[in-house]
Design a protein around this nucleic acid. Structure first.
Lengths: 168, 168
DNA sequence: TAAGATTGACTCTTCAATCTTC
DNA sequence: GAAGATTGAAGAGTCAATCTTA
């Protein structure tokens, strides 16, 4: 689904339309929201391409990394859903697939019979590290902004997330 | 799928993990990418909630707005895919659904027998304007950033989009 | 009764293959 | 043969309903 670059920025055009329809006060917000949607789409495509050879999606990669960074290499599914801010059903989905691929194991939670733990296997640990190496090199280190502007975007997006009640 | 706010910012935590695993140079990019993904998720949820009563998704709303802003109120499907940066199949999907709902009409393209035009109906035009009023009020005008910071984010995201080859 | 997890239905997206027209 | 659009299949996400345990 690759496209040639457009001669004009379609989001600039949309913002101008908003301004000329009497929606001046909403135009900047519309522009920012639409830009976030589009940048996410670009990032998601890049990440998906890098992760495909590993048999991973971004959601499943995030589950692996959460486990990699955890003290014992295991976490309750509910905790993972909270940290990743996704629906419980999405966690179940990702965990099931990762388990089929032998990257994690499901264990009963000794302290709560209702709960399940996901635990990283040795194979999962190795894959998480390899995939991270690729992502670091091909995506994260290549984000096309002057180095001093990255913390700026980060801070602005963080303000948006905090305002939305993501964290306190 | 609503969640209570977390006591710490999970993205801050991930960035710190990156730094302490010898991936310092990739940490800022990882933080920005992850933040964009999360802010997109928040925005998408807000937009979906506002559009639900109108029977619209964001993708279908974007199609309506593209037609609303076009000279004749009609555009070839391929052109819409380019402007919205989505797969042709997504356009077909959205257009089919909008047509079922009586918001647009499919017409043959007089200048190319392979191509189809989508044309806004009166009903579609009214709905597009109503939905925009709601989005302006409940989402776009309420984006939680000091007014002078919106153009800043916009500019930074635009630099990212340009670097990705979105437009020239 | 409530909480954790799972299931099945539904939506949206992309991809590959196909059909028609240029 | 190439381009525009469509179709069917597969993947991922949410939601509502359900099952089990606390």
């Amino acid at each position: 689904m690759d496209r040639r670059p457009l001669p004009v920025d379609p989001i600039d055009v949309a913002v101008k339309h908003w301004e000329s329809h009497g929606w001046q006060d909403a135009a900047p917000g519309m522009g920012v929201l639409t830009s976030v949607m589009r940048v996410q789409q670009i990032f998601a495509a890049e990440v998906a391409e890098v992760l495909r050879p590993f048999g991973l999606t971004f959601a499943r990669y995030e589950v692996l990394m959460l486990l990699l960074f955890s003290r014992r290499g295991s976490l309750p599914l509910g905790t993972m859903g909270e940290r990743l801010q996704v629906h419980p059903a999405s966690v179940t989905n990702a965990v099931t697939r990762l388990e089929q691929d032998g990257l994690i194991r499901r264990l009963p939670n000794p302290s709560d019979g209702r709960s399940a733990l996901a635990e990283l296997t040795a194979k999962g640990r190795r894959l998480a590290v390899s995939a991270t190496d690729s992502l670091n090199t091909q995506v994260f280190r290549s984000i096309a902004l002057p180095a001093d502007e990255l913390p700026q975007v980060y801070g602005l997006l963080k303000a948006l997330r905090r305002a939305a009640g993501d964290f306190t």
